[in-house]
Design a protein around this nucleic acid. Structure first.
Lengths: 118, 118
DNA sequence: CTTTCAGTTGAATGCTTGTTCAACTGATAA
DNA sequence: TTATCAGTTGAACAAGCATTCAACTGAAAG
């Protein structure tokens, strides 16, 4: 394993370091998974939805009014959050109420807010 | 303040809840900042660069060989990471050595890896 | 001075993505 | 059964973004 990759336009300068770091690198799939995870938090609309749901479970219509966006836009983002297991929903008649899927998401989310406030 | 936003295609269903959540919502800029912060971690190449630098400081050429990409591609990503204050660099002759800017980035980064391994 | 090579930069390209629009589903109320 | 309304969906569009390519900068070696 650890063959040299073919698509590169220069020779290794510090071979020992590169070899050692290469040995310790996790598989590519790990990076893809982690990138996908962080991508969920990389859009202001999704963050506002999560922040709102962290405050109170809400239906799509309420979120649309709160965020000043169409129900369609909110619904599309909720679908992504659902697929990422960040939110769960409960249907009651015509109304679908969304909430955060678990405290784990809640923790990660609140940690982020702490960060930008230094 | 807290005027109702104009761009919406439905009426509020649970007014009390919406009003209360609206009061507690941070300013829009906070969400933009937080989204930009997470966006840095939302690309596999940037994550691999950070992971490599967390292991050992490296020059652009080494990173290119390690990740099997052109120096140009690496350099473009390093520029973004530099602008986001995630990495710092040190010039010595022709070679520019990059490293993580501080342990804070290191912590956040390692926390992410813990997460995807459940 | 000239060559070499690590690194940067900007334009071009193709893929991704957030939002809108319009059509649709399905539960409730009339 | 019909009308209404919360919510979903897919196509379309524009904006954003990662990578490549080619040209460039600047330090070191000859």
């Amino acid at each position: 394993m650890a063959e040299r990759e073919p698509i590169c336009d220069c020779e290794t300068i510090h071979e020992a370091v590169v070899a050692r770091v290469r040995e310790s690198m996790p598989p590519a799939q790990d990076f893809a998974d982690l990138a996908a995870f962080y991508k969920m938090f990389s859009d202001p609309t999704r963050l506002r939805i999560l922040r709102a749901l962290n405050c109170n479970a809400m239906c799509v219509c309420d979120l649309a009014v709160l965020l000043g966006m169409t129900k369609s836009a909110i619904s599309h983002q909720l679908k992504e959050l659902r697929l990422a297991n960040s939110v769960k929903y409960k249907r009651e008649g015509k109304i679908v109420t969304y909430s955060l899927s678990d405290d784990h998401i809640k923790d990660i989310f609140e940690k982020g807010f702490e960060h930008i406030h230094e």
